[in-house]
Design a protein around this nucleic acid. Structure first.
Lengths: 320, 320
DNA sequence: GTAATGTATGAAACGCGTTTCAGGTCAAGA
DNA sequence: TCTTGACCTGAAACGCGTTTCATACATTAC
């Protein structure tokens, strides 16, 4: 592969001039520019990206940490990131972690090693303290509702959304309310649990541990949940669930079993994905894709605030 | 940021020795190794990735071209790629194209520019000829059933699968069969259309152009499809559809409208995603994730064949 | 005892584009 | 005519780790 020096030789100019041509610097006489272009064509020259990266110290590569691409929530964030990244000529480096701290550290090492210019955590398992330590090496954005760090973050006010969801179920006459979480450890889950406890206290209901279901993320999980519900001795009348997937699984199974919805069993979920609309599931719309976009704007310094909270909206449909 | 030369100075050794320590080369005396480690610690040294990439000529970065992450089919392939890539210490660079040839070319330029060591096309819009031209710069793997090029490819035998699907509908007594495609231009679509025509000919049915529906990918599309079906004067009694998403949309709407399935309307789809199981949709299982894994094995030269065709399996459920 | 190996280390070149600095030309303004 | 600034160009240094080559000592083998 030809390099810049060979081009310079063939075109009869210096490497600096070739570099100028490459970077569209104005101070190059037309004849020389032509000569360089010809030489590049003749030798089929193409720049070596790692060399540019080394030289410039930046790569236009953006790291994205996510547990799994298959979970639509994260897929959507990535979609938003990709869309906004496109505008700024950023390529995405995906780091799939499955909530493995090791993998998250690897992602942070990519930042320290100057392979990526910035890093977006769509979710995390590592501690804020550790993550913060890497901040000097490049911008790090969190997609979570965190007030414990000054790292920039873009989020949905999960606590508030959860609270509103519960309130809505209350107004519909439910007091026996269960909820599901994606991952109890998750940063967002804490907020949700807190909101749950607050509301239960308010209406003088006990916080039944067995009514807080962990690891509910998929349709399959939803199916098991309804099956579970059937076997319970004391049954909740309403569920506030992790996402539309879980709700879909629940609704499908509930219908099969002839459970009356929403009378016997009400379901309210989060996300407002296509499936929720198709199945008339009541849900809380959260602008997931928008989160991804905003995160990129943070990286690009387009957004000056350090915390951005995105609005959610309760969508009333048939399951509550 | 400290570099290797500073470390060498502080440790009182040469840069080569530092490099050896960094790369676990055996020919370094223990004392020196210690000294280097200490110096690295003292200066908080961390390697610069672009420098290594430039030096080595490889990056352990793998490009993945895909139209959209939100389409579960592609999300699944990426999942497979990520899983297998993990084993080989590969990071993924995602290039979302929306079937835009320009973007695909950008991806190919990354390969030429030595930023990525290999490139996987989960789908493509660019011509094989153009793609082939970039092959000298690194391995390129296609996820399609192509016999027109010697580029390695991993695929599902779409033609055969489609044929089998149609045959199955035939055995169930259907002759008025419609089908949907994700994208008529798509390489897989050609095969599917061909299969469709072959079968229609065989049973002396006309190939009704208006029964080949294009751009059907989402639940939403499925909903519209059933609505459409209701308004048709001459109705097909069976559909072979792009994926489970579309099928789900169709089934949901059909149930709402009181259409009897499978008597009035039979549906067979592709993929066998969770939603198909949950909704008892008859489908043709294709090992999507496996495709991603195999693709990586091609990149790593673990797979010696140049074409791999993965098995599919018809899953009988309630919609046919 | 001498040749052949293995171990250990450093200097220098290499991969390749960018950037700084110094020097030069030429036209416009004083 | 002299100055000033815009325009143009090239040499050399720089970013940073890897690799080759030469050298030197320590073993082992015959």
């Amino acid at each position: 592969m030809a390099n810049i020096r060979e081009i310079a030789g063939l075109a009869g100019v210096s490497v600096s001039t070739v570099s100028r041509v490459l970077n569209n610097h104005p101070y190059v006489r037309d004849e020389k520019r032509q000569a360089v272009h010809q030489a590049m064509e003749r030798l089929d020259y193409h720049r070596n990206l790692p060399a540019i990266h080394l030289s410039k110290g930046t790569t236009n590569l953006l790291g994205v940490v996510l547990p799994s691409i298959e979970i639509p929530y994260f897929g959507n964030i990535v979609e938003g990131i990709a869309e906004e990244g496109l505008k700024h000529d950023l390529q995405l480096v995906l780091i799939q972690t499955n909530y493995n701290v090791e993998k998250e550290l690897e992602a942070l090492e990519l930042l320290r090693g100057s392979l990526i210019d910035g890093l977006i955590f769509t979710s995390r398992a590592a501690s804020l303290k550790i993550i913060k330590e890497y901040n000097p090496h490049g911008p790090i954005i969190l997609c979570e509702d965190s007030d414990q760090t000054d790292l920039p973050s873009v989020s949905i006010p999960h606590e508030k959304a959860f609270m509103d969801g519960l309130d809505y179920l209350l107004t519909k006459g439910h007091t026996k309310i269960a909820c599901t979480l994606g991952r109890k450890q998750g940063t967002n889950s804490h907020k949700r649990i807190k909101a749950y406890q607050t509301i239960m206290d308010k209406i003088n209901q006990p916080v039944r541990e067995q009514w807080i279901f962990d690891k509910c993320l998929t349709i399959e999980d939803g199916i098991h949940l309804t099956e579970n519900w059937c076997r319970m001795t004391e049954r909740p009348t309403a569920f506030l669930v992790t996402n539309d997937q879980v709700a879909a699984g629940m609704v499908l199974t509930a219908k099969e079993k002839g459970i009356h919805m929403p009378e016997e069993l009400a379901i309210l979920s989060f996300d407002n994905q296509q499936i929720a609309k198709a199945m008339h599931i009541s849900t809380i719309d959260i602008p997931i894709k928008q989160m991804g976009k905003k995160a990129v704007q943070f990286i690009q310094n387009t957004e000056k605030r350090s915390k951005v909270s995105l609005p959610f909206q309760l969508i009333e449909r048939a399951t509550v």
